[in-house]
């Protein structure tokens, strides 16, 4: 097996005494290199908490997370920062672009922080921008461009350092349907062309249908798993909607 990430019995509790909330309850799964995995669930199902632990932003209460055999739950904070810097790329619902930097600079900063030289940086940044269709807005500031463009900028930033894993938290949450489709196409492109491993958290069935595999989370536990296999996207979407209908989740697209 080409296993990349292995999550073993991870738990996350909040609160203390009698007032404990189990946000994530003994979750285990694994992800292979080059996979595009979705995590679905209603609000409060623990999907964002799980993502935060996978992305080292939050600590686990119990359990282990291995990246290529490295247990990231045992790293010290300096090591965690280093790990994050060299292995992970992020795409968030609210873009998380720096408002004082231009689109190009937002992407460039990710590379200068790695200590790369101008000669290395410029071609990669420009190539990435033209591939994602944001080259013409390079010198604009985030407030001057559309939400879709911002999100593509965030994708470019997540990819420039060729991270082992791209983590996306509700990336289409703030976009209209056309921009969402463009972004998801971008994700597919990133997955196929750049062989990026992508882990996307979403509550939206349409977005999830772009994934290769989906984990369904409910009350902090994985209760179902779907693989796309050779199915068309439409078929896969229907399958997802069926699962959601069973759990009383998002069924807007079923009608």
């Amino acid at each position: 097996m080409n296993e990349f990430i292995k999550v073993c019995d991870v738990e996350k509790y909040y609160g203390e005494g009698n007032n404990i909330t189990k946000a994530v309850n003994r979750v285990s799964f694994s992800i292979d290199h080059g996979e595009f995995v979705g995590i679905m669930g209603a609000s409060g199902s623990g999907k964002s908490t799980l993502l935060n632990m996978l992305s080292t932003i939050d600590h686990v209460t119990a359990g282990h997370i291995y990246y290529d055999g490295l247990d990231i739950t045992a790293l010290r904070s300096e090591q965690v920062a280093q790990f994050r810097k060299y292995n992970l790329g992020f795409v968030f619902q609210d873009f998380n672009l720096l408002d004082t930097l231009t689109i190009e600079e937002n992407i460039r900063l990710a590379m200068t922080l790695h200590g790369k030289s101008k000669q290395e940086i410029d071609p990669v940044v420009h190539g990435m921008m033209s591939k994602l269709g944001i080259a013409e807005i390079a010198d604009k500031f985030p407030y001057q461009v559309s939400g879709g463009q911002k999100q593509r900028c965030a994708c470019a930033r997540a990819l420039v350092n060729q991270p082992k894993l791209v983590l996306a938290d509700e990336p289409t949450g703030a976009l209209d349907s056309r921009s969402s489709m463009m972004l998801l196409d971008t994700f597919t492109l990133m997955n196929r062309e750049f062989h990026a491993t992508i882990l996307m958290v979403t509550h939206d069935a349409f977005s999830a249908s772009y994934c290769g595999r989906i984990l369904f989370l409910k009350d902090g536990q994985i209760f179902h798993e779907l693989s796309r296999g050779e199915k068309t996207r439409r078929e896969f979407l229907n399958q997802i909607l069926d699962v959601l209908a069973l759990t009383g989740g998002d069924s807007g697209y079923a009608d």
């Binding site: 992305s55 920062a81 994050r84 998380n96 922080l113 790695h114």
Partner: peptide, 19 residues
């Protein structure tokens, strides 16, 4: 307040607390 967000982004880009 604004900086909190900016430094959060930097943190996600891999900057350690010391940096």
């Amino acid at each position: 307040g604004k900086y909190r967000f900016r430094f959060d982004v930097l943190r996600k880009l891999g900057l350690s607390e010391r940096q």
